[in-house]
Amino acid sequence: MGAKLSGGGGSKFHVEANAEINVTPFVDVMLVLLIIFMVAAPLATVSVEVTLPKAVAKPIENPPKPVYISLQKDGSVYIANDPTSLDALGDDLKKAVGARNPEEERIFIRADKQTRYAEFMKVMNKLQDNGFYSVALQGEDDAK
């Protein structure tokens, strides 16, 4: 903040406030910083060559496509988009899994909210009878 030292009105000890900003010191500091960074930037680059070792880790394979079982409210069962019956669920599921180990395969179950619990448990029991022990239940996310 500056002060007005001369001018009309008031006595010689009366000093009025000047609200104009003096930008000269600001510009001086910015120019000094610019010069410092221009000198320091080339020093920050690494010019020493180093032979780095090769990576020995193998890339991770993509996980297999998940298998979904869908239960509708009328009791119909689907593996992915293919309809199946409760009796044929185990064999059809083993075909969908292929050569992978059924005990390590995760099966995702999607059921209509009006599906009877007894129908859901029949599917769960059928999965366990055929060696599928890793089951995940899928729900709808309400956060929109």
Rank of each mutant, 00 (worst) to 15 (best):
L34E: 02
D112P: 00
I36M: 08
D87Y: 08
L33V: 14
P66K: 00
P102Y: 14
V67K: 02
D92W: 07
A40L: 12
L5C: 07
A136N: 10
E49K: 14
L52S: 01
T84D: 04
D129F: 10
V23M: 11
I107M: 09
Y68P: 00
K65I: 14
V67R: 05
V15L: 12
I109P: 00
Q128T: 08
A19P: 06
T84C: 04
V29C: 03
N22M: 06
D91E: 14
I69N: 00
L137W: 10
M121R: 04
I109L: 09
I35L: 13
F37Q: 01
D87K: 13
I21E: 12
V50F: 10
L31A: 05
P102R: 15
K122I: 03
S6W: 10
K94Y: 02
A80Y: 01
P59M: 06
S76D: 09
V48G: 02
S6V: 14
V15H: 08
F120G: 04
F120Y: 15
L43D: 05
V23W: 15
Y68A: 09
M124N: 14
K113P: 05
E61L: 05
S70V: 08
I79F: 07
K113F: 08
I60R: 04
H14P: 00
Q138R: 14
M1T: 02
K73D: 13
K12T: 11
A136E: 11
D28Y: 07
K126S: 10
Q138P: 05
A88H: 08
V32M: 14
A99C: 02
A41L: 11
A3E: 09
V123E: 02
N62D: 11
N22K: 09
G90H: 04
E16K: 13
A44L: 15
D141E: 12
V123P: 15
L71C: 02
L5K: 09
A118N: 03
Q114M: 06
P53V: 15
P59A: 07
D112A: 13
V27L: 13
A111W: 02
P25L: 06
A40T: 07
D112V: 03
A96I: 13
R116P: 07
E119Q: 10
N18F: 15
A88E: 10
N125E: 11
A136M: 11
G131W: 00
E119V: 00
E16W: 05
G75C: 11
F13G: 10
P53G: 08
A40K: 08
P102W: 15
A19L: 07
V46P: 02
S47C: 06
H14Y: 09
V77K: 00
V29R: 04
T51L: 15
I60V: 11
P63Y: 06
S47H: 10
F120C: 03
I107V: 14
A80N: 11
P64F: 01
V39S: 02
T24S: 06
R116G: 10
A118H: 01
P64L: 04
P83W: 00
A57H: 04
D141V: 15
